[in-house]
Design a protein around this nucleic acid. Structure first.
Length: 1102
RNA sequence: GCCCGUGUGGCGGAAUUGGUAGACGCGUCAGACUCAAAAUCUGGUUCUCGCAAGGGAGUGAAGGUUCGAUUCCUUUCGCGGGCACCA
């Protein structure tokens, strides 16, 4: 019987669905394993062969791990918000939700054909309100948090407010050191804080929030009325339409990712990413140590602040360069240079950041101003130039032409004299960025080594107050808003310039329908066009006004809830308390789920909240009720004494204490709950000045304006790996039990193009959620596997310029003047054009004529990105229809290493298909006529139950070793070839034994699941091959007694010799010297040396 | 421009730790089966000199370390990816 892949694949795909073979439970006694693919954007163009590469790789691994006894989570879903759907909506008027749904269906159909083991019951879609509800919720948590530099962790804004009330911002300076209050200082006292207006307070808090609103420059295209991405801007005009583009400041949301810079760096040590990937992230974060130095400006009271990593070169400063956008430019430019400077700025405005950085030719303008070197009072000219970017450092540099290449070229261009501080290390021809020179011409640093001078000058700068040592990061805060429609709306309303968060109960804030998708006024997003949606009144918002302090509310030390700890005690204990909160036990977590959010009797409980010198597990301050959970050690006599003493002490303060054991909580939570409830009910009405936080207020009659920006593409993808763990939860984004079980993603598969964007953002979100105690790990991805791109191989035909109906074969184009035209790869066989198909492809080609080469039309070939517009895409579905999913899967893997980019060539797929057929013939007898049904074919199985020979076992175990090792290290191309070798060898010795074939089938099932399932059942097995056990490798079966040693003379292979493995070294050397070939090369001379490496080779040096 | 990756037969690639360069597959050539074709099977296939035996060269290029380098080091060239609003 022949290998009928179409019937087989359909049959098993149906069977798997019917039997829910891929459904994964969150409860299992097996160890867990989480294999994740990077979130796909469901593009309208559908899948091409490049897309499934990573999915196949991860699918093989997921199936392999399952065979190895793991409970494997391998989900798939869609990052469904994004620009293409919106662009499509603008052009065709189709709602993005509709086109996205269609694209997803199409995507799914294509994916289903390939036989993936995804658990589709966990599918997520970022554009679904039940998903983005939680994206908005996390955004609100970011909004309500700041980064506490003292603990290096996120903390609540409420806590920050309480700190401000105590000490002003003494211990919590502004994250942006350049931020200045109107008082032109960046410090305030507790007293000042209390006297600020609500608006002032909110503006200050905004400077701390982890998601905040600020102003940023965008590429603004007036003609299109919209904001453009950098790569949509080419030479200062829009890619679409060629309209002018300028920089424009717009209100934008940001994530304060810079606060996490150090932790993002440190975290890299704990994850298994490639060194290249870590390096890219490290460079992106760009931590550098240096100094901020203030230069005075002649005839001005303003200081020019620069950041430099080389303060040791301070005496080599020959000029200063400001970014054209620098705030001082206008002020310091002299009348004489005004026109020139303005013209230059206007030109730079049209330039994208990319162009500015990549530009080789020097440009700039002199402002006419001079800066004064604080150390030697030397005056140097101040220029502006596009090579200094406003966002980096302070937007101004001190230029040292003898040490920096760009500064050097700039100095040459503007004829600025160059000071040599490097002595003979500077040749006047090019800059030398050395750090090892001995300084000359450097005032009090002369004669010092640069690295010593660095330390010296840093001390001086700080001592004299000319500046300070500073750590700088290249990374900037992440822009988090887009002026677009198709993204998550922000759960924010505005009134009088203050941003109010929506209450969490009001989430999700759904995207409203719009009539059209055109931009709103003044560069706002399309949502700004819907007045009815933007203007809201009568909603309940979270009141951001800090309430009166407990003291102001008239509380005294005897009032429950406050003053239970002294500030000193509290400071010490709060750290422990926080730690405790993070590391809660199973029982604590269980009871917390009952107590949290005023679930019992509407009473507020806090956990691990310090009371005087003691941290109870849970406490209701208003009722003075404490709940303790006792672990096993409470049974010890010593501990009992402490416990009793503590209870008595708490009694003195009128605290009541309930104790439960771990077992009570874990096994009888309902009983525990009832007891707590009864206790609370018996206590009557609380007589306490309550402090509900955060407070809520009704805003009857007031009009608020909704935020009209939407979130960027990476919002939903920054946390999706958590949602897969608990995709249908309506109570929380992901239950902690689920995230505790699945934990980190064990293997994350995706392209390097996400190296810095998505990966850094999701790492930050994970750290943030960890800080707040929502999850128990702070790195999302344990191991990263980068898949390479599959490039397209484009085909060209050549049209005669003089005779545009004639096409010339590639080999003859030298004789003609031709235009190269792309032609669809699918009508070209290798390089030979299917002339008939070509004529039919376009009406204008119907009567085309050809100049052939030996009767064939040969196309030109070029490797480039695979894309519809280049006519070089290949649809996986076509290949699956023609060769089957198993062949397709194995061929994609066989192409080359997963990590490497490689061009696609359909030609080779037949070889893999032949291999599967050959493998099939180990089980089934070939018949000349195909049987009419699968059932009839069953009788033709030729597998026997004979015992395996040593030779057969050797073939099998060599394959097991190779395939297991290769699968483990994702070297799938060599594993496929090992399957081929094994099949070839088994065919050669006519082996049809079940004991040999069954293990091979099990191994093959992760690569070619359909044929493996079919053959597994043909061998008489019942359940799915997925639940089989991976064959165990037995090293004993591969032991050899001798080896064919290569014998080299002077490192060049001359012959080989079969030598016993336990032969002694001296014996071997003697044997080798007697060898004919060796004798010939020795030519009677004595060998200088004989190198023998056991199990490797012998080298004779003559 | 900056950062990262990569370069091996006609093609995709293999060589896991410095130790037989080219496994496996495609293509191609020769043969078997066939009226013929397809399919299948067998054998050859880095280039080069040679009837052969056997030499020489060879992993982008140039140098270096080593008994021995595709692998390590230096310089250099080509190609691919990223560079903050494509996802």
């Amino acid at each position: 019987m022949e290998y009928q892949f179409r019937e087989i694949e359909r049959k098993w795909q149906d069977w798997w669905v019917k039997n829910e073979t891929y459904k994964v439970s969150n409860h299992s006694s097996k160890p867990k394993y989480y294999v994740l693919d990077m979130f796909p954007y469901p593009s309208g163009a559908g899948l091409h062969v490049g897309h499934p590469l990573g999915y196949i790789a991860s699918d093989i691994y997921a199936r392999y791990k399952r065979l190895k006894g793991f409970n494997v989570l391998h989900p798939m879903g869609y990052d469904a918000f994004g620009l293409p759907a919106e662009q499509y909506a603008i052009e065709h008027g189709i709602h993005p939700a509709i086109s996205t749904t269609q694209n997803i269906q199409n995507f799914r159909k294509q994916l289903d054909k390939i036989g993936f083991s995804f658990d589709w019951s966990r599918e997520v879609n970022t554009s679904d309100p039940s998903y983005y509800k939680w994206t908005q919720w996390i955004f609100l948590q970011l909004f309500k948090s700041f980064f506490n530099r003292q603990t290096q962790k996120a903390d609540s804004i409420d806590f920050l407010i309480s700190e401000f009330e105590k000490d002003g911002n003494l211990y919590h300076p502004f994250p942006d050191s350049n931020f200045k209050l109107p008082s032109s200082d960046n410090r305030f006292t507790a007293e000042e804080w209390k006297n600020f207006s609500e608006k002032q307070q909110q503006e200050i808090l905004m400077e701390y929030r982890l998601s905040y609103c600020g102003y940023g420059e965008v590429n603004w295209c007036e003609a299109l009325g919209t904001v453009l991405a950098n790569d949509e801007v080419i030479n200062g005009v829009s890619e679409r339409g060629g309209f002018p583009v300028v920089k424009k400041k717009l209100r934008q949301w940001y994530l304060r990712i810079t606060e996490y810079a150090d932790r993002l760096l440190e975290g890299l040590d704990t994850v298994d990413f490639s060194d290249a990937m870590k390096e890219m992230q490290t460079n992106w974060i760009g931590k550098s140590y240096g100094a901020e130095i203030n230069f005075a400006i002649d005839d001005s009271d303003k200081k020019l602040k620069v950041f430099t990593t080389r303060p040791d070169t301070i005496f080599g400063v020959d000029f200063m360069v400001l970014a054209p956008e620098h705030e001082l430019v206008e002020e310091i430019t002299t009348h004489k240079h005004k026109k020139e400077v303005e013209e230059y700025i206007a030109w730079v405005k049209s330039r994208s950041e990319r162009e500015r950085m990549a530009e080789k030719t020097i440009s700039g303008a002199f402002t006419g101003a001079y800066a004064i070197n604080p150390f030697d009072k030397r005056e140097v000219p101040v220029y502006i130039s596009e090579y200094v970017l406003a966002g980096y450092g302070t937007g101004a540099i001190m230029a040292v032409p003898c040490g920096d290449e760009r500064d050097f070229r700039f100095a040459k261009h503007f004829n600025i004299p160059i000071t040599n501080i490097l002595g003979d290390k500077f040749n006047g021809e090019e800059a030398n960025p050395t750090k090892d020179a001995e300084l000359v011409n450097s005032n009090f640093l002369t004669g010092m080594l640069m690295k010593d001078a660095m330390v010296e000058i840093l001390n001086d700068i700080e001592g004299i107050g000319y500046g300070k040592a500073k750590v700088n990061y290249k990374m900037r805060d992440a822009a988090f808003s887009r002026q677009r429609y198709w993204g998550e709306p922000f759960p924010i309303v505005w009134k009088d310039g203050i941003a109010y968060p929506l209450k969490e109960e009001e989430l999700p804030l759904q995207l409203p329908d719009v009539e059209h998708y055109k931009p709103g006024p003044e560069g706002e997003g399309p949502l700004a066009n819907i007045k009815d949606w933007v203007e809201v009144d009568g909603i309940t918002i979270v009141d951001l006004t800090p309430g009166p302090s407990p003291k102001e509310r008239g509380a005294s030390p005897s009032t429950p809830g406050y003053f239970t700890s002294t500030p000193e005690q509290w400071k010490i204990l709060s750290v422990f308390a926080k730690e405790n909160r993070r590391n809660k036990t199973e029982a604590e977590d269980k009871i917390w789920q009952v107590l949290r959010n005023r679930q019992i009797n509407n009473d507020k409980f806090r956990r691990q909240h310090p009371i005087a010198g003691y941290i109870p597990d849970f406490v209701c301050l208003e009722k003075k009720l404490i709940i303790e959970i006792d672990g096993g050690y409470h049974n010890a006599a010593e501990q009992k004494r402490f416990d009793t003493a503590r209870s008595e002490w708490l009694n003195e303060y009128q605290y009541k204490l309930l104790r439960f054991t771990n077992d009570e909580v874990l096994q009888h939570i309902d009983a525990v709950r009832d007891r707590i409830l009864n206790e609370l009910l018996s206590m009557g009405k609380d007589d306490v000045v309550g402090s509900p936080s955060p407070k809520e207020k009704e805003s009857e009659g007031e009009v608020f304006l909704r935020e009209t920006n939407t979130m960027p593409g990476y919002a939903g993808s920054s946390w999706y790996f958590l949602r897969y763990m608990d995709p249908h939860n309506n109570e929380t984004f992901c239950d902690k039990n689920a995230s505790d079980y699945w934990n980190q993603v064990d293997v994350y598969v995706g392209g390097t193009e996400h190296a810095v964007g998505h990966l850094l953002y999701s790492r930050m979100w994970t750290k943030f959620l960890y800080d707040l105690g929502f999850i128990n790990f702070d790195e999302p991805y344990k191991k990263l596997l980068n898949q390479g791109m599959i490039q397209g191989s484009s085909r060209f035909v050549y049209r005669d310029k003089n005779n545009t109906n004639t096409f010339v074969s590639f080999n003859k184009i030298n004789n003609y003047d031709v235009d190269a035209i792309r032609v669809d790869v699918n009508i070209v066989d290798g390089v030979e054009l299917d002339i008939e198909a070509f004529k039919k492809s376009k009406p204008e080609y119907a009567n085309a004529e050809f100049i052939l080469d030996e009767g064939k039309y040969i196309c030109g070939v070029e490797t480039e990105k695979m894309s519809k517009s280049k006519f070089n895409t290949v649809d996986p579905s076509d290949l699956v229809d023609k060769y089957g999913a198993d062949t397709f899967r194995m061929y994609e893997m066989f192409l080359g290493p997963v990590e490497q980019s490689k061009p696609w060539d359909t030609k080779g797929i037949e070889g893999v298909h032949r291999f599967l057929r050959k493998f099939w013939r180990l089980f089934y007898k070939e018949s000349a006529t195909a049987p009419s049904s699968l059932e009839m074919a069953m009788g033709e199985v030729i597998v026997t139950n004979d015992n395996a020979t040593d030779a057969e076992l050797k073939i099998l175990h060599r394959a097991i070793k190779k395939i297991e090792e290769d699968t483990e290290r994702f070297s799938y191309n060599t594993a496929v070839s090992a399957f081929m070798v094994c099949t070839n060898e088994l065919t050669d010795i006519k082996c049809h034994k079940k004991s040999i074939l069954e293990p091979v089938v099990i191994m093959l099932s992760s690569y070619a699941p359909h044929i493996a399932e079919e053959l597994y059942h043909a061998l008489g097995n019942e359940g799915s091959v997925l639940d089989a056990t991976y064959p165990a490798f037995d090293a004993k079966l591969l032991v050899e007694s001798s080896k064919q040693y290569p014998i080299s003379i002077n490192g060049k292979l001359r012959t080989t010799m079969n030598i016993s493995l336990d032969a002694h070294e001296n014996e071997i050397k003697k044997m080798v010297l007697q060898n004919e070939v060796v004798q010939k090369w020795l030519d009677g001379k004595e060998p200088k040396k004989i190198i023998f490496i056991k199990n490797k080779m012998v080298n004779v040096v003559v």
